[in-house]
Simulated assay, not measured.
Amino acid sequence: MKTFKFFQYAYLVFAVLFLYDAIANWGDSKAYMSLLLGATAVFMFFFKQRFSKKIENKDRK
Rank of each mutant, 00 (worst) to 15 (best):
13 V>M: 10
35 L>D: 04
28 D>T: 15
58 K>I: 09
10 A>C: 11
37 L>C: 12
31 A>W: 04
2 K>P: 02
11 Y>W: 00
36 L>Y: 09
7 F>Y: 14
55 I>N: 04
14 F>P: 00
27 G>P: 08
53 K>D: 11
57 N>W: 02
10 A>Y: 11
38 G>M: 04
8 Q>E: 13
58 K>G: 02
58 K>D: 06
41 A>E: 06
50 R>Y: 14
42 V>E: 01
28 D>Y: 07
59 D>Q: 11
49 Q>I: 05
6 F>Y: 12
14 F>S: 10
24 A>W: 06
47 F>L: 10
7 F>Q: 11
3 T>A: 14
54 K>L: 08
3 T>V: 12
33 M>F: 13
5 K>M: 09
46 F>Y: 03
29 S>L: 10
60 R>G: 03
50 R>I: 08
30 K>I: 13
26 W>C: 08
29 S>W: 12
39 A>P: 05
49 Q>H: 14
43 F>V: 09
25 N>L: 12
37 L>I: 13
30 K>H: 15
53 K>T: 07
14 F>Q: 06
14 F>D: 04
59 D>S: 07
16 V>S: 03
36 L>P: 03
51 F>M: 13
19 L>N: 10
28 D>I: 03
2 K>M: 02
2 K>L: 10
56 E>R: 01
36 L>M: 15
4 F>G: 12
14 F>V: 12
28 D>G: 07
39 A>D: 03
26 W>E: 08
9 Y>Q: 09
55 I>Y: 04
19 L>Q: 12
25 N>C: 02
19 L>P: 01
35 L>W: 06
15 A>K: 01
31 A>Q: 05
37 L>F: 15
49 Q>P: 00
47 F>G: 04
53 K>G: 07
61 K>E: 05
7 F>I: 10
29 S>D: 15
25 N>E: 11
44 M>P: 00
41 A>Q: 08
57 N>R: 09
1 M>I: 15
22 A>T: 02
29 S>H: 12
34 S>M: 07
17 L>T: 05
20 Y>E: 06
46 F>L: 02
17 L>Y: 03
52 S>K: 06
52 S>P: 04
9 Y>V: 14
7 F>N: 09
48 K>H: 08
28 D>N: 14
37 L>R: 11
59 D>V: 09
61 K>V: 06
24 A>Q: 12
31 A>K: 00
35 L>E: 05
34 S>D: 13
38 G>K: 01
47 F>H: 13
55 I>Q: 08
20 Y>H: 02
59 D>T: 09
44 M>A: 09
49 Q>R: 13
51 F>N: 08
32 Y>D: 13
